[in-house]
Design a protein around this nucleic acid. Structure first.
Length: 597
RNA sequence: GGUCGAGUAGCUCAGGGGAUAGAGCAACGGCCUUCUAAGCCGUCGGUCGCAGGUUCGAAUCCUGCCUCGAUCACCA
């Protein structure tokens, strides 16, 4: 379906051609929604066209406006304000649009097309500590972006690349071995990921003591960090792991399984999921062959110490090491390998990586090296770079204990939601569905809070001030939905007609009704824009605007007390459709909406 | 130092060539005998970081500067 802006642009081009004998470039025609306080639906800006019309703005607008009224059947009338031509569409257009939208099963959602898929990687946790607020942003973004891409008609594959091996994993394993006394999730009552995190922190603490001691004995800092016994042991453990040492592998499997059990709970609660999980332990060797082949083909360079590098200095970047002098891989090497694997697995048209902006350089280099290696699909790599979540006093630092734990945060939100619901008298302790509602509302608040911010911008989270439940928030939108459901339930009880019978009058809609109609009309375009920009924030802000429009309508116009049953049916239909679109939009964000609250 | 990103109301954020820059929170004032007041309506609040430039028109594009952040490891 061609949208109205495009249609009016085309019409304007035709009008100018007919009136002034010159065909304007499409870029000269600016069609936009008319500002709410001004009469009209769409506005065409005249200024760029003046050099073709050779008339003043008002005269030009009169000419084009008249031509459009005469030649475009959906145009009802026009008004001219200075250089702006405001077109009002016919009531029939709105009627046609709305009755059509009501009939659609999934209005605004593009059915999946038979094309190459889009792979979205997100989450990608380390298995040595629990998830925190930063991961929450990552997970919510990744999940929502996948939904949005799917809503634009692309097959979508959500993947998680779990960082389950490496020196950091060995650190927590070692600390558990030395200080754990066999502690398990069962014996301690701790979630597995938290238990492992505890030993990761413990390692750091003990290690620092050792380093401090060595420095005290006269060693310089770098040497002390390298030669501290715990570090030596961790490295030794990593070598044993790499050599498939049975004892180390079995410990590693045991501890990782604890972490996964913990992650599953958190993922479940957040409502995110994956279609495919890659484990770094299974892929970390993959890149080396690619690099060696590139070296053979003369695309990479080897230095005297036999380390291998990609030379990007002619592209304004540095040299990047890909194999150490001892022949082992670095992070970049692994990513080259996993990208290659992913390409072979799915032949995607696009590979989206949801990763924080601290890795902008890494992904820039990744794409360039892939290209250098002759991978023609290098351009399908897209880094969805999002800003850090900052606390009032700066970034989260585990050493300073300022990390906001994901589970704790959700617990806190739950408590707030519960307290607030009870204060408002919405539900009582023990009511059926109360627990589900608290979950829904608390997660709605958290998710919306995070997703309404443009991904690329950093965002501030203040743990001192709990996340709002009023105003531009998730619960506000959820509440609006619950109101709509309540209204529809009452309508059903009163045997009101909801279906349109064609007699409804669209020529004299209340402005609040018109606002809703226009907002609903925009939804497909919003999904398109959000997809093009990979921005859940666009969906979030739209859902808010729609909910706000509905609440004004609800306040100003009575639905069930209206005598004219055609008006009631139209208003109920508007309410029904608003509810559907709110549910759909919130669903894209991974936020559920309640029947009552 | 190089590269990249961000600076919009007291606070958190929209707007990313077009009309008088918008919301929410906070503050203040109204609206529940009437479809759910987690709501609605109103008041207050701005040198869109600074300076140039392009344009009929700049918060928006370009250049320079300032501030903040990220990054530039044989770390991941």
């Amino acid at each position: 379906m061609i949208n109205i802006e495009q249609l009016l642009t085309q019409n304007t081009i035709e009008a100018v051609k007919a009136l002034y004998n010159t065909e304007p470039e499409a870029s000269l025609v600016a069609v936009q929604k008319t500002r709410p306080e001004i009469q009209g639906d769409y506005t065409i800006v005249m200024f760029p066209l003046l050099r073709i019309s050779k008339k003043n703005p008002v005269q030009t607008a009169e000419d084009i406006g008249q031509w459009i009224i005469n030649n475009v059947d959906i145009a009802e009338k026009f008004d001219v304000i200075k250089g702006f031509l405001n077109i009002t569409l016919k009531a029939d257009y709105w009627k046609g649009f709305f009755t059509g939208a009501l009939r659609e099963e999934n209005y605004g959602i593009v059915p999946t097309r038979d094309v190459a898929p889009v792979v979205v990687e997100y989450s990608s946790p380390n298995t040595n500590k629990p998830l925190h607020l930063g991961h929450i942003r990552n997970n919510l973004l990744g999940f929502a972006v996948s939904n949005i891409i799917a809503a634009n008609g692309y097959p979508t594959i959500k993947v998680n690349l779990v960082n389950d091996r490496g020196i950091h994993i060995c650190k927590s394993m070692l600390a558990w071995q030395k200080f754990g006394n066999g502690e398990t999730p069962e014996s301690s009552g701790m979630k597995g990921d938290h238990l492992i995190g505890k030993y990761y922190v413990r390692f750091d603490k003990e290690y620092k003591l050792e380093v401090a001691k060595l420095i005290e004995q006269g060693m310089d800092e770098d040497e002390a960090k390298e030669s501290a016994p715990l570090m030596q042991e961790a490295r030794a453990m990593l070598r044993r792991w790499e050599n498939n040492d049975a004892e180390v592998r079995s410990l590693w499997e045991k501890m990782n399984s604890w972490v996964y059990a913990g992650f599953d709970i958190t993922y479940n609660r957040m409502g995110v999921s994956f279609d495919k999980i890659y484990y770094e332990s299974e892929t970390y060797l993959l890149g080396k062959d690619l690099v060696l082949k590139g070296l053979e083909e003369g695309k990479l360079v080897q230095k005297d110490d036999s380390s291998v590098w990609a030379d990007l200095t002619n592209q304004g970047l540095d040299e990047k090491i890909l194999l150490r002098s001892d022949g082992t891989s670095v992070y970049m090497t692994q990513d080259l390998g996993t990208a290659n694997l992913r390409y072979k697995d799915y032949m995607p048209q696009k590979m989206v990586y949801v990763v924080g902006n601290e890795q902008n350089y890494h992904f820039d280099v990744l794409a360039r090296v892939l290209k250098m290696l002759g991978k023609e699909w290098a351009d399908t790599v897209y880094h969805l770079s999002y800003g850090m979540v900052e606390l009032p006093h700066g970034k989260m630092k585990s050493r300073e204990g300022t990390v906001v734990d994901a589970d704790d945060l959700m617990d806190g939100m739950y408590d707030t939601a519960k307290q607030m619901s009870e204060e408002l008298g919405k539900v009582k302790e023990g009511d059926e569905g109360a627990d589900a509602l608290y979950n829904m509302v608390s997660l709605g608040a958290l998710k919306y809070f995070i997703l309404k911010v443009d991904p690329k911008k950093k965002m501030l989270f203040n743990p001192e001030e709990s996340i709002d439940f009023n105003g531009n928030t998730g619960p506000f939108i959820q509440y609006t939905y619950a109101r709509i459901r309540s209204l529809l339930r009452k309508a059903a009880v009163q045997n009101k007609r909801i279906e349109l019978n064609g007699d409804e009058d669209f020529t004299s809609l209340h402005s609040a009704e018109m606002d809703i109609l226009k907002a609903l009309h925009e939804y497909p375009g919003v999904i398109k824009n959000a997809g093009d920009n990979l921005s859940p924030a666009m969906i979030a802000n739209y859902a808010y605007d729609l909910a706000k429009a509905f609440n004004s309508f609800y306040q100003e116009v009575s639905v069930l007390k209206e005598d004219d049953e055609n008006k009631t049916a139209l208003r109920l239909s508007l309410s029904l459709m608003t509810g559907k679109v709110i549910k759909s939009a919130m669903g894209l964000l991974g936020i559920e909406v309640p029947e009552r609250m």
